[in-house]
Amino acid sequence: MNAKLDSAPIGVAVRISRIDWDAMSHDEGRRLREFGLMEGIEITPLHRGSLFSRDPLALSVGRMQVIIRARQAAMIEVAPTAS
């Protein structure tokens, strides 16, 4: 079952199944790849927003933590990890 990263539950590891590269700008896509966000990579959403906002989203990729906006997260499809 695939879901979008912007609605994935916090603290549960998921695997990136698809990224809609066409929906984002060239620079956005490149920065995502520089952060190591690519198909097949395992990530864990960690924190979402503050006060009344659901933006942004902090997630862990390997040993790194990165911050992206919900808008970009909505372009990333994730699936439960195999285990």
Binding site: S50, R54, A58
Partner: peptide
């Protein structure tokens, strides 16, 4: 701090 402020700053069209 930038993470916490991003939501507010997004409301006025800026970013964290």
């Amino acid at each position: 701090a930038a993470f916490l402020m991003d939501g507010i700053m997004a409301k006025v069209g800026l970013s964290g």
